[in-house]
């Protein structure tokens, strides 16, 4: 009894210390950003005198620094003078970001990343990201840009700045060839397979509460359920079901786009206006030459096949039609 009390006490003490630690760290970071921003003011003054920079941008960047956010991002000029841009991508989400058999990064996102580096005139250094750490990497400046199939959401937009979108994603529904589900009405009285925690789950629960859902924890289990005929159709992101149907003969994506489009965009650290403006200008220029259609041809078409309309995924010039 006495021993367990000691252990609990020790736990409380160390938790208390941990809390103090993070508090102390915050104070320290605020102090250091305050110091940094006064330095920044001096250099800004100097660069304004030279007439080299846009004053609105400078003051925005300064605001971001004052707000105490991690301010370790690099501006376009800093990236150019270092000669390398650090871009975070997925390394295991084919065909968007993956590593091929030779060990090279490939995919739709990576193709775009190479173009960004080329247009900046720098080399590119890829960092392998996982879904959970994407915000943190870019917010702390460990990567300059996150380009990892990053869906724009209001929560994320509070922590990072999103550029204009280069892709969009909606829900898709895949079903067996002999009983293709072509519209949501076809699903009445049928069983729909979904993976837990996906947008499909929330969408159907909210909009079609009368459709019977069969839920699985993992994608693999959900697909197996469809193969075994435990449900009539499976719904998740259209990019995912289209690729799967292509690799599994006997199944068709009857509904290619359903629900609202989510957009996918590059993200930079909050307040990194020079890089954000560069990316937005770049997206507009690339839109004129239909760059992302070419990207689609190179990276996604081999997976999605000839029958898929590129415009169900690709966004040109940052404009959603």
């Amino acid at each position: 009894m006495k021993k367990s009390l000691t252990v609990i006490a020790a736990a409380l003490v160390s938790l208390g210390l941990a809390a103090c630690g993070s508090q102390g760290a915050k104070d320290a970071s605020q102090a250091s950003t305050a110091a940094a921003s006064s330095d920044a003011a001096v250099t800004e003054g100097a660069s304004k005198a030279e007439g080299t920079s846009d004053s609105a941008q400078e003051s925005k960047a300064a605001d971001a620094k004052d707000s105490g956010a991690a301010s370790s991002f690099r501006t376009v000029d800093e990236i150019k003078s270092s000669g390398t841009i650090k871009i975070g991508v997925f390394s295991d989400k084919a065909p968007f970001g993956y590593v091929d058999d030779k060990g090279e990064y490939q995919g739709y996102d990576v193709y775009y990343a190479h173009r960004i580096a080329d247009d900046l005139g720098v080399n590119v250094e890829f960092t392998s990201l996982d879904p959970a750490s994407r915000v943190e990497y870019v917010a702390t400046g460990k990567v300059d840009i996150t380009l990892a199939n990053f869906t724009v959401t209001p929560e994320r937009a509070e922590q990072v700045d999103f550029a204009l979108p280069y892709m969009k994603v909606a829900l898709g529904v895949v079903s067996p060839d002999n009983a293709v589900i072509k519209s949501v009405d076809d699903l009445k009285g049928k069983t729909l397979i979904i993976a837990k925690g996906t947008t499909a789950e929330t969408y159907f629960e909210k909009n079609y509460p009368d459709i019977k859902l069969q839920k699985y924890d993992a994608y693999a289990d959900a697909y197996n359920a469809l193969l075994d005929g435990r449900g009539d159709a499976f719904s998740t992101d259209n990019t995912e079901v289209i690729a799967w149907a292509k690799a599994n003969p006997g199944f068709t994506v009857g509904i290619e786009t359903l629900g609202d489009y989510d957009t996918i965009a590059a993200a930079v650290a909050k307040g990194n206006t020079t890089l954000l403006d560069f990316l937005n200008d770049e997206i507009k220029t690339l839109g004129e030459e239909k760059f992302f259609h070419k990207d689609y041809e190179e990276t996604l078409k081999p997976v999605f096949g000839d029958n898929t309309d590129p415009d169900s995924m690709v966004v040109e010039g940052g404009v959603i039609e």
Binding site: S91, D92, K93, A94, Y98, V99, D100, D101, Q106, T127, S128, L129, D130, A132, S133, Y137, K142, A243, K246, A247, V303
Partner: peptide, 20 residues
């Protein structure tokens, strides 16, 4: 999870690149 690609992640990359 802090960006170091070790043996398990390399394996996952290989699995994923060939998943179709």
């Amino acid at each position: 999870l802090i960006g170091v690609v070790e043996v398990l992640k390399t394996g996952q990359q290989i699995i994923d690149a060939n998943r179709f």
